[in-house]
């Protein structure tokens, strides 16, 4: 079967809504995993559904000049931002208790985890102090391994602003780690 580009599918979906399902197949797994990591499995299904519903509703606005992925992730970012305070509360609870609310019901299933991430509660405390955009910028970098340019496209910000945000976030996170004077 001919592999259509995302933009072609979006265009086709204006006449044939079922074509949009292919975009879900292509993009939902990674987006869902990222949202899970930010807000936990309980919210992830809803947020991904809302993101695709919004994208489908606004598909006429997608002009094909940007990557569809960046456009979709931008929409997801707006939906995630609506849960900014909820996310902050979860990070704070993690920092306070050592139990990550986002991992509720998940960790027990994963018997092969090797990374205990002993620093995670400290990082969570620092993440709780970041603004919505700073937090998104640093997590897109760390968890999704995206480039500064891709992050700028998703957040719809100039490249220089993204660099400044990531620098600021990294400084805060570094201070949260123990042994700041480690010279290694």
């Amino acid at each position: 079967m001919e592999q259509l580009g995302d933009s072609a599918i979006v265009a086709a979906s204006s006449r044939d809504p079922e074509a949009f399902g292919e975009l879900f197949r292509r993009h939902a797994p990674r987006l869902h995993a990222y949202v899970k990591r930010r807000l936990g499995a309980a919210l992830a299904d809803d947020i991904v559904a809302e993101t695709f519903a919004t994208a489908f509703r606004q598909r006429e606005r997608f002009d094909g000049r940007a990557e569809f992925g960046a456009w979709l992730w931008g929409i997801a970012g707006n939906v995630i931002a609506k849960h900014h305070r909820q996310e902050t509360r979860m990070f704070r609870a993690f920092a306070r208790t050592g139990v990550d609310p986002a991992e509720d019901g998940v960790a027990e299933l994963v018997s092969d985890r090797v990374h205990a991430a002993a620093h995670a509660p400290r990082l969570a405390k620092a993440l709780a102090s970041l603004s919505a955009q700073d937090r998104s910028a640093i997590l897109l970098l760390a968890w999704e391994e995206l480039s500064y340019a891709e992050i700028a496209a998703i957040l719809n910000l100039p490249l220089g602003t993204v660099k400044a945000k990531i620098h600021r976030a990294r400084t805060k996170l570094r201070k949260a780690l123990p042994g700041e004077n480690n010279d290694g």
């Binding site: 991430a117 995670a120 968890w143």
Partner: peptide
Amino acid sequence: ALRQMRTSLA
């Protein structure tokens, strides 16, 4: 350190 956080959810 961030990359090692919440890997079970990724």
